[in-house]
Design a binder for these strands. Structure first.
Lengths: 144, 144
DNA sequence: AATAAAGCCGAGTAATCTTATCGGGATTTA
DNA sequence: TAAATCCCGATAAGATTACTCGGCTTTATT
């Protein structure tokens, strides 16, 4: 038993990398190799992380020498929830209440516990969608 | 990519089983085999789940024929958070902000992202500690 | 006393997921 | 052309999950 309801390394690294892009938003594209070094993340693993981020439209790539990655929108318009969803899939503590899920589970309406997971999911989404990359940068001063 | 920040089957089954115990709280000990049947959970897997629940003092066992399990306290005094913590360990989206954790991570105070995970953790704990087994039973009528 | 109903418990396991690593190809700048 | 960079599929080690197996102990009933 480790600890649960956790985001994977992919999600954690992804958020950290996106914060770097937010910090350097105005200074042109940042190469992946540099981000990997600054954040002590395997370059090749980071490549795997940036693919879904780009496909989700959160970042844009500039190929070739002097290339790199830039946020597709200003830091204030990218939510941490966007990053997590792109990397980890829909936010949900259990399958049956996954965001965007339409079908019902086999347990039907008699399921007493679904309400718990819905409340938890909503609470998680609300927090993650309330924090933008701009907020993350400012947060360093305040909070616990 | 499946879906993350999710509770394992252990946690999900555990909560469901505890709800059964809450429903039958006044009718004496409920045998594991019966719970397994009612909830369509493997009996042997459920055994593994009840061990930590008992060690955490959430349930009490009655051995021998006519034995079974009973909640250690009335449904109103057992929080879903207690069950999750007993089965899944400390609530935390990432290691470095695990509940009860004292040591600091290698990234030190310069970590910009820790605030995100702290807020998320607090929000998750708050929801799970706000719902008791008694609430779960009542919830069936209201909510979505 | 014998039997059956129940809990107790450690070891083992197949499938899956995570976390990378590897190797090469495509694109652009200097 | 050479170097920097992104693009992307394959694969592999290790961890985790979700169970299963087998045997023991305790207690109520007969």
């Amino acid at each position: 038993m480790v600890l649960l309801m956790k985001v994977s390394a992919k999600g954690e690294y992804g958020v950290r990398a996106m914060v770097i892009l937010a910090l350097d938003f105005s200074t042109g594209p940042v190469p992946l190799r540099e981000i990997a070094q600054r954040e002590c993340i395997s370059y090749q693993f980071l490549e795997q992380i940036f693919l879904p981020l780009r496909r989700a439209g959160l970042i844009e790539s500039v190929r070739g020498a002097k290339g790199g990655y830039v946020l597709a929108r200003p830091p204030g318009e990218i939510k941490v929830g966007d990053i997590i969803r792109a990397l980890e899939g829909p936010i949900a503590p259990v399958e049956c209440v996954a965001e965007g899920k339409t079908g019902s589970c086999s347990r039907g309406d008699t399921c007493l516990t679904r309400g718990i997971w819905q409340r938890l999911r909503d609470s998680m989404s609300e927090v993650l969608d309330d924090i933008t990359l701009a907020d993350v940068i400012c947060m360093s001063a305040d909070s616990t």
